[in-house]
Design a protein around this nucleic acid. Structure first.
Length: 181
DNA sequence: CATGGGATTGACT
DNA sequence: GTCAATCCCATGC
């Protein structure tokens, strides 16, 4: 895992599928990710270093958490060597621990509704903007190797308006826990 | 200092 | 299918 973070952001995004995100009592297996790199305009780091994007340019293995649409927190794993702005967005999880707590935080019962989207999973795991800049190897939010080997397919990213042609979305085919529209 | 947009979600027609 | 919620911060005057 440690070496993976420093590698190419697409390789990291693909490798993260099947890994386990944990925060406190809650945890889930990653089933969907997307890669973002400073060289393409969909990435926040495209505009260069700003107060908001500082974490993206930091050392690999950090959590980059930002607020989207004024409402939702988004969890990313910073990739590539220190000084390069890139990160893998965690888009969906299969819930495995703390499911009752997730239900309470989400106000939903169906297990498919708990973590099937980037804004949903941060709410379910209780991840906030204060976790921005934290180390994913030390916590409080951690990512660790999973036990299962999952099939992974790539496709185009969703919810963006620029660089929409890049096949930088990675997901488990047929999983009922991926985000859907 | 004012403004506008966004890697989304859920409620509603 | 449409649309509002809501806030950080990048950008421009």
């Amino acid at each position: 895992m440690t070496d993976l973070y420093a590698s190419d952001v697409c390789a990291l995004a693909r490798a993260l599928v099947g890994c386990v995100v944990r925060h406190g009592e809650t945890a889930g297996v990653i089933v969907e990710t997307e890669a973002y790199h400073e060289s393409e305009p969909a990435c926040h780091a495209y505009v260069g270093r700003t107060p908001r994007t500082l974490t993206l340019f930091g050392p690999p293995g950090l959590a980059y958490v930002y607020r989207s649409y004024g409402i939702h927190a988004m969890l990313n794993a910073v990739a590539e060597p220190d000084g390069i702005g890139a990160a893998a967005l965690i888009r969906a999880l299969e819930p495995i621990e703390g499911i009752e707590l997730m239900r309470a935080r989400r106000g939903r019962e169906r297990i498919e509704d708990l973590c099937s989207g980037p804004g949903k999973l941060t709410q379910a795991l209780g991840i906030e903007l204060t976790h921005n800049g934290g180390d994913l190897r030390d916590g409080p939010v951690t990512i660790s190797a999973g036990e299962r080997r999952l099939e992974v397919v790539s496709s185009t990213r969703v919810g963006i308006t620029r660089a929409t042609e890049l096949p930088w979305r990675f997901s488990v085919p047929g999983s009922r826990f991926v985000s859907r529209r």
